[in-house]
Design a protein around this nucleic acid. Sequence first.
DNA 1: CGATTCGGTCAACGCTCGTACAATGAGCCG
DNA 2: CGGCTCATTGTACGAGCGTTGACCGAATCG
Lengths: 192, 192
Amino acid sequence: MSRVSAEKPRRTRADQRRETEARILAAARATFAELGYERTTIRGVASAAGVNAGLVMHYFGSKEELFSRAARLPEDDLPAGHPAEALLTSLRRRLDDEPVASLVVLRSVLTHAEASGEFRVAAAAWLDRIGAAVPAGDAALRAGLISSIITGVVIERHLLKLSAVADASADDIVALMRPVFESLAGEGRGTG
Amino acid sequence: MSRVSAEKPRRTRADQRRETEARILAAARATFAELGYERTTIRGVASAAGVNAGLVMHYFGSKEELFSRAARLPEDDLPAGHPAEALLTSLRRRLDDEPVASLVVLRSVLTHAEASGEFRVAAAAWLDRIGAAVPAGDAALRAGLISSIITGVVIERHLLKLSAVADASADDIVALMRPVFESLAGEGRGTG
DNA sequence: CGATTCGGTCAACGCTCGTACAATGAGCCG
DNA sequence: CGGCTCATTGTACGAGCGTTGACCGAATCG
């Protein structure tokens, strides 16, 4: 059961640290996404990363800070082009490659409201971008509904897994959702 | 600081018990809905109900059982009529009067997967009913998407409260969602 | 009226959690 | 090589949790 002694010991101390820290962060993301904030324990993350719990504290300071780092989203960019198609592209991306960080937030924000500070900022920006792309008087409400719908579908597919949405192909889902997004983001027959 | 001595002492012991049990259950529902399963404590529920924590255990046996009782949904009936309109009615109901038991489940199912047994059964029945009302080859997927969408909107309106969906009038939301449901539950141009 | 039931309280248990801190030992630099 | 740095470990503490069981006192019953 030798650890990693037979491998290249060519790792400098800084490399070692970066690698370990990344391993902890990956374990944290996976665990937060699977269990949510409360049921995730420092010890569990440490064990999954193959290190001691004290080390997690040493690197991240607190569970709260670890969550904040794990839940940092890369960049939620809305593709250019016709709003409905752009939103479909965004949806498809979140259907296919499971964005773990996104699930971390989604699951934990529902459990641990205090840990959602940064998320609310990012969500507001995302909503603004959708709203700006929707040519209607009630753009804000339409953007909110679009965001809610995407959230609902992602939750169902990756977290709840109660229906056919969990197993269906992304193509089929996107095809069915196209008229939905066209209706909400489409022509500007808004009531405003 | 006399308790309730000046009121009618006409309560029999059985009445007293039923009333206390109902008070605990109401407190549990509110707390589970607000905090989720993990952050809800027996002591907290007991305190909110004005009783001792031991009594909650005495009446419900365990936290798990208390949750199961609190999360018991009354009846998730789908109105008759045209599928899209029936779904809109169902959505409107969940937009208006906040169905606390439903939020209990929704919030906690995302946190405490083990506590979701009964919920999954109820959800499956609900999905079947939607699917049966949708005349298309891919009815199951359509039903799943409809359910996901309703879930997403309800979560946004009652739990996340990040966008205009939280404050908009139910009428406006229903109006914008009508074409959505018509598209998903409407005419049977399914791919099957 | 005395005995019994039972709604309700209180104090304590064992456990797990986040966190703190001293110790260890291998890498780094002069 | 010798001292220093620092990644990593082990241990322990205090708090809060679910849960238990002894106990009290008023309602109930014969």
